[in-house]
Structures are given as structure tokens and as C-alpha cells.
């Protein structure tokens, strides 16, 4: 529990330091045809290169070092849901300049905009689950 709290905290510190919590940065990163700012590409470079070791380690194990079950996603199907879902997410990300992590990490500093975004996001999630049933 305390480890999950620390992980969430460090994750948030990384989001703030990297510039991911500023929608202006997201827009400049996605504006490839304009005055493109590639800086946020390096967030992925940093995050992926480090966690790749952890996932490589996890591949051959079924338990964590605390003896908890280690469950990796098994879904490998690339279907309409994946493509349509990722497209809708990308449109929303481009519109607001927020993705879920930075929005959660901005709720204290930007209560109005981040709060409104998160409430709408949660409504979207609940609506999707209602229709899935």
C-alpha cells in the first residue's frame, strides 16, 4: 500500500518535472506541422528505457519480490475497439492537452479545468461500461 502511494507520488513528480502537466506543452508536441516541440518525446524515451528492464525481469516470473501475484496483460488482439478507442482518446487528448495522469496530478493546482476534465472523463468511463453491458 505504502509502495503504491510512493509509486503514485514519484509518477506525479515525473509528470510535473517533464512538462506533461502543461496542456500548452502537449499542444506544442502534437503540432508536428507547426512549430513542433519534440521535448515530450524524451519523456517516453526516459520512461520506456527504464521500465523495459523491469518488464524484462517480470516476464519470466509469476510473483513479485513481495510474493504478490504478478499479472501481465495477455490480450494481444488488435481490433476495432483498440483502434477506435485510441482514436477517441487521441482526439480528446489533442482537444484539452490533458491525458488521465497529468489531469489527476493537476487537480490541486488547476482544480477548475482539471476537475472538470476528470469528472467528464469518469462520466465517459461509466457511460462506456453501461453500454458494454
Amino acid at each position: 500500500m505504502i509502495i503504491a502511494l510512493i509509486a503514485g507520488l514519484v509518477f506525479g513528480l515525473g509528470l510535473i518535472l517533464s512538462g506533461m502537466t502543461d496542456p500548452e506543452n502537449i499542444h506544442n508536441f502534437l503540432d508536428i506541422s507547426g512549430n513542433w516541440d519534440p521535448a515530450l518525446m524524451f519523456v517516453m524515451v526516459g520512461a520506456i528505457s527504464l521500465s523495459a528492464f523491469a518488464f524484462f525481469w517480470a516476464k519470466s516470473r509469476s510473483q513479485t519480490i513481495l510474493g504478490e501475484p504478478l499479472v501481465l496483460p495477455v490480450n494481444t488482439i488488435i481490433d476495432r475497439h483498440l483502434i477506435l478507442g485510441a482514436t477517441l482518446f487521441g482526439i480528446g487528448w489533442g482537444l484539452a492537452g490533458f491525458c488521465p495522469g497529468p489531469a489527476v496530478a493537476s487537480i490541486i493546482s488547476q482544480p477548475h479545468k482539471a476537475g472538470l476534465f476528470l469528472i467528464s472523463m469518469i462520466v465517459g468511463m461509466l457511460v462506456f461500461h453501461r453500454f458494454k453491458k
Partner: peptide, 25 residues
């Protein structure tokens, strides 16, 4: 901005690694 993005990315990667290695999530 690029160095901060890289450093922030490493923190994110570290957090993701900790959650995986300790919690399996």
C-alpha cells in the same frame, strides 16, 4: 526542457518499475 523531460520520464519509468516489481501491477 528536453533534459527535464528525460529526467521526468526516468522518474515515471522508476515509478512504473516499482509498482511492477513490488505490487505486480
Amino acid at each position: 526542457a528536453i533534459w527535464q523531460a528525460l529526467a521526468g520520464g526516468l522518474l515515471i519509468g522508476f515509478a512504473a518499475s516499482v509498482l511492477l516489481i513490488f505490487n505486480g501491477k
